[in-house]
Nucleic acid binder design. Structure first.
Lengths: 219, 219
DNA sequence: AATTAATTAGGTGTTTATACCTGTTTCGAT
DNA sequence: ATCGAAACAGGTATAAACACCTAATTAATT
C-alpha cells in the first residue's frame, strides 16, 4: 500500500486553536494529509503558489485578505484546487456568493467533525459537497429567480466601491463624511448607499451593518 | 507522584472544532484535566451544578445563553470557580463589563496556545490573568473615570429594556415599529435609543449595531 | 425618608437617511 | 459598434434618526 495517495489539504483560519482543532481531527483520518496552514488570505495565496493542495478549508472571515477574495484569487490561478468555505454564519447571500466564485462547499464552523470528513471526501471525489442546508438555500434562490443562469446570478455581488462605502458606513461615518473622505459628491455616496440597500436586501443602515458583519467585511 | 492534583477545567463554546482544538492542546499539559465541555451557556450552568471545575474557559458569544449571562449565573452560585473569557473581539467596554461581573481573565480567540497556558496557571495560582492588552484597557478606563470604584463603574451597563430595543434595532425595525411591538410610545423608544447612544459611545445606528455584534447581543 | 436608576412619555428642531427621478462617462464584453 | 454595468452626480421629497429639553412613576438602595 502506498501512502502517496493521501488527499492533500491546507487550512486557512486566523484562529490558531481552531486550526489545531481541525488539524488534530485530520490527523485521525488516514486518507488525508494536512500539508500546511495559513493565518490569513494573503499567507494562503503565497503558500498555494508554492504548492497546491487538493482541498483548502477556508475561513471566510480573516484579516488582511478575507476568504472570498482569497477564493477568487486562488480559483483564478489554480481552478483545480477545491475550496470548502467555513464560516460562522448561515447567510443566504453569502452562500450563493461563495459558491458562485468557485467554492466547492459551504460549512458552518459548528459542523460535526463527521460531516467535515464527508465534505472532504465528497469534494475530492465529486468536486463538490452540498449539505441539506446549502441545498435548501439554493432551492430558495432558484424558486425566487426562476432562471439561475449558468454562472449563477450575481446581481447581488458588491462592487469594490460599494464595499468601500459599506465599510465606512460601519465606521459610523455619514454620507457627507464619506464623500469628503473619498473626494466624491455626497450624492454619489447616496447612490452607492441605495445600491447597497438593494443588493443586500437590507432595509436600513442597521441592516447594512449586519450584512457587513456576517459577510466579514468588518469585524 | 499523584495525579489527583490536576487543575480541573471545563470549556463552553458552541464550535465543536474550536473546543477540540483547545481539548487537544490541554491534553498535552500534564497539570490540567479537562473534565467536560458545553455547547452553550445553559448546558454549562447545568453541568457546573453537578460538578464544579476550578477553571472555565468560556466563549462569550453563544446561542441559548450567552457568555456574560452564564458568568453571572455561575459566579452567583459558585464564586470560587474561576472563569476565563474567550472572545473574537477586543471590545473595550466588553472587557470591563466581563471583568466586572466576575471573570478572571479575558483572552482573544486567536490567542497563542502558550498564552492560554499561562492564563490558566496564573488564574489558578493568583486568581486572575491580565495580559498587556487588558491592562492597557483598564488603565484607559481608569484615567477616564478618575475613580474606578470598588465595584468598577457600571454606568455603561445596558438595562434589559435597552438591550431589548437594541436587538430590535438590529432587526432593522424603526423606532415606530419597535414602539408598536412593545406597546410603547415612539417617544419612549427614542429615549431608549438616546441612552443607548450615550452608553455605548456610538455615533449612530451603524455604531449601535456594531456594538451589539461585538457584545454578542446579536449574531 | 431620601436618593438613585429605570421606564415611561411629551415638545421642538436639525440632520441624516431613504426613495424616487434624471443624466453623463468609462470600461469591458458580445 | 452596441450593450450593460459601474461610478459618478444633480434634483426633490418624505421618513427616520439624532439632539436637547422636561417630567411623572416605580422600584430598589441607603
Amino acid at each position: 500500500m502506498k501512502t502517496a495517495e493521501k488527499i492533500t489539504i491546507a487550512i486557512a483560519d486566523d484562529h490558531k486553536l481552531f486550526r489545531s482543532g481541525i488539524a488534530a481531527f485530520l490527523k485521525n483520518i488516514d486518507e488525508v494529509e494536512l500539508i500546511y496552514e495559513a493565518e490569513d488570505g494573503k499567507e494562503l495565496v503565497d503558500k498555494v503558489k508554492m504548492q497546491q493542495p487538493e482541498i483548502i478549508l477556508m475561513d471566510l472571515n480573516m484579516p488582511v485578505m478575507n476568504g472570498t477574495e482569497a477564493i477568487r484569487k486562488i480559483k483564478d490561478l489554480y481552478p483545480d484546487v477545491k475550496i470548502i468555505a467555513l464560516t460562522m454564519y448561515d447567510n443566504e447571500k453569502m452562500i450563493t456568493n461563495v459558491l458562485e466564485i468557485g467554492a466547492s462547499g459551504y460549512l458552518l464552523k459548528d459542523v460535526e467533525p463527521e460531516e467535515l470528513k464527508n465534505a472532504i471526501f465528497s469534494t475530492h471525489e465529486t468536486g463538490y459537497y452540498f449539505n441539506d442546508f446549502v441545498n435548501s438555500t439554493l432551492l430558495k434562490q432558484l424558486l425566487r429567480n426562476k432562471k439561475l443562469d449558468p454562472k449563477f446570478k450575481k446581481s447581488f455581488e458588491l462592487s469594490d466601491r460599494e464595499i468601500e462605502v459599506l465599510k465606512l458606513i460601519c465606521k459610523e461615518l455619514t454620507n457627507a463624511e464619506i464623500a469628503e473622505l473619498l473626494s466624491l459628491s455626497p450624492r454619489t455616496v447616496d447612490g452607492h448607499r441605495q445600491r447597497l440597500l438593494e443588493k443586500t436586501g437590507a432595509k436600513n443602515t442597521a441592516g447594512l451593518v449586519m450584512y457587513a458583519f456576517r459577510k466579514g467585511y468588518v469585524s
